[in-house]
Amino acid sequence: MSLGRRAHRHAAWLFPAPAVLLVAAIIVYPIVYTGWMSLQEWFASSLTRPRFIGLANYGKIVLGDARFREAVARTVYFTIVAVAAETLLGVAMALLFNREFWGRGLLRTLAILPMVATPTAIALVFVMMYHPTLGVANYLVTTVGLSPFRWTYSSDTALYALALVDVWQWTPLIMLIALAGLASLPREPYEAAHLDGASARQAFWHITLPLLRPTLVVAILFRAIDALKTFDIIFVMTQGGPANATETINLLLFNQAFSYFNMGYAASMAVALFALVMGSSLILIKVRRSTAW
């Protein structure tokens, strides 16, 4: 196979080259710019140049800024709540729907809908549904005998009410990816397990889940990245309130850049958010690699 190996050496860098070059072309400058800006103090003025202040911005976000620290904790918590719920529900739905049944096409179309709906529009529809005295959510809740909630209108429940929107919108993604994963599972292990007299539950835990894991981890990875960066729905629905109860890093970052014009400080927050997401991703990638690579 010497011929094959030589060709392989070329193919191994030729195949990914276009993707890597293209991505590099559009992200290198932003990375350099953000990194440089994070070392400056600058308020977007046309009259003064950015002033180099070394690592002072980083020192401040790590040590001095309680609002930032709280935002980090909140962001992580929001992500865990939302993604965990999405994964559990999504896998459950995939298992349920992984069969022949009448209306399957309709179901899949329906499942795609929440993902394609524009987040801002959906968020606004939820704003109206969550309205404590005019909203349909409390109408439905009280109809089934529960007492009304405050939804996004109380510090205690706002973060969960936002997570619920995220869950509503993205559970179908996990379901679709899990369904695709289920469709590509080999049959032999199940046949073998069946012959060995394994129960369906055992087959699920010992065959389905491990085989599904690589695909699922990718889905979770992407959901986690997006959830850590959630912006649209929070911005539309609570703007981080009540008080700062739903202020995530991305929201704070946006405010620092485009409301407070604190460009250098915002850049350092962007780098910190990047580090947080990158760190979480590497952990997830490790989980994935332990099965596949």
Binding site: V127, H131, P132, T133, P148, R150, W151, T152, Y153, S154, S155, A158, T238, Q239, G241, P242
Partner: peptide
């Protein structure tokens, strides 16, 4: 105030 007024913007 109406319930939830703490997070009312102008449209609520």
């Amino acid at each position: 105030g109406p319930p939830g007024v703490v997070n009312f913007n102008w449209y609520e």
